[in-house]
Design a protein around this nucleic acid. Sequence first.
DNA 1: GTATCGCTCAATACACTGTATCGCAAGGAG
DNA 2: CTCCTTGCGATACAGTGTATTGAGCGATAC
Lengths: 240, 240
Amino acid sequence: MSSPMPNELVWDRPEPPSKPSPTPLSRDLIVSAAIRLADEGGLDEVSLRKVAAALNAGPMRLYGYIETKDELLDLMVDEVYGEIELPPPGTGWREGLTQIAAGIRAAAKRHEWFVDLVGGRPRRGPNSLRHMEASLATLEGKPEFPTIDHVLGAVGTVMAFVHGAVRGEVTEARAERSTGMTEEQWQRASGPYIERMLATGEFPTLAKVVYDAEHTNSAAVFDIGLSYVLDGIATRHTPA
Amino acid sequence: MSSPMPNELVWDRPEPPSKPSPTPLSRDLIVSAAIRLADEGGLDEVSLRKVAAALNAGPMRLYGYIETKDELLDLMVDEVYGEIELPPPGTGWREGLTQIAAGIRAAAKRHEWFVDLVGGRPRRGPNSLRHMEASLATLEGKPEFPTIDHVLGAVGTVMAFVHGAVRGEVTEARAERSTGMTEEQWQRASGPYIERMLATGEFPTLAKVVYDAEHTNSAAVFDIGLSYVLDGIATRHTPA
DNA sequence: GTATCGCTCAATACACTGTATCGCAAGGAG
DNA sequence: CTCCTTGCGATACAGTGTATTGAGCGATAC
């Protein structure tokens, strides 16, 4: 608004605030900005205003590329699916599923917000379809899984386990971080509350877990759980 | 504000709006009002203002009973855990875990919002502790599970599967409802989008699922998955 | 009986959300 | 040069969780 004198030199003008930088936008730019924000500060940090600000744009600008915020979240999920490495064709079903599970787990560790979204909305993005396709293809055609329903059942079971397990892990990690304690400490110290509960004697087995269990690292727990699941599938589908 | 004439009769006065009804409140009343709202309209319907309004109170009144909205959500979750029937002591581990899984699944069908919350926050309410205790106790002491770590591993695996599976089921149910189609219809019709994707030939296995699979009812799918998991556990823990 | 204190609850206020609407300004067509 | 279109930004609105403030009232002290 203040018209500057034409020849006056101002050497540390911060930015022309009227036109900050009309960067050309794109869905991908928006999505990766949103992902960066979510990685740094959690899903709460993903608001249309903040995403737009990170791109030097006004909030409403995004609506040219995105229908609604939910669509943005879907795109974020699909992008993460795209990061997950898939087993090459011809991999054995057990190794294949193991790799897929590990891939999801790794992605969820990189992007903790992933677990809040995945499984909670229908997946139809191209990357998530590719992921699903590869998972199914790992089993399809193998003699242990004669029909597509067997394939679907096995893959679905593994996916359900992986989603649940990974979500639990991330939740636990968050809780530890927010109390600033490792789980071991948490269980032993965890404020007087858990102590008091356990002291009532109403929870003997829980107490045993808290005081006697080994608490091996979480990756090992995940692997053990996964091998239970895979063993179960193998039991019902022994090769002919 | 309008002082009514003392003797004037008004027979359908809607409500004295100045003092609508100073119901005595309690945590339980608040929680069950919130649950009712969530059951009817989903978690979005649970705002402090709406919960308070359902109890004829102002929003800030709730803060006398509840620290924060998150605490209310935790209480809701714990309340649902309290609804879940637990297997009596002495039940075999496999039947016990089956009953527990069925209980969670049933609760999640009654309260669809449950799956959005459970697993996403640390569980420390009394009912959820009781639930955890009972789950562990079902295995503890059985010869198949010699140490508490074995118990924990098995229960954790089953819980991860159940949470993941139930979340997926509810998500699918929501999607069906929002598109107004059953899944079968959905898969065959699902807007041109999925059609087009499948027509690319990039997803042959997925196409097989959509066109050839039997789509047995979801309870059966859940049961099959659960028996995979239980079989796997049984394989690694054969009775001595 | 009166005055004061303390407590409870409601109203207001604030910063923030997602999104609908509107008006401006720049670019292309005649 | 003028007019029209189109895309973008500012503004606006209804809603959120919660901090603060203020009013009313019951109980206690004199």
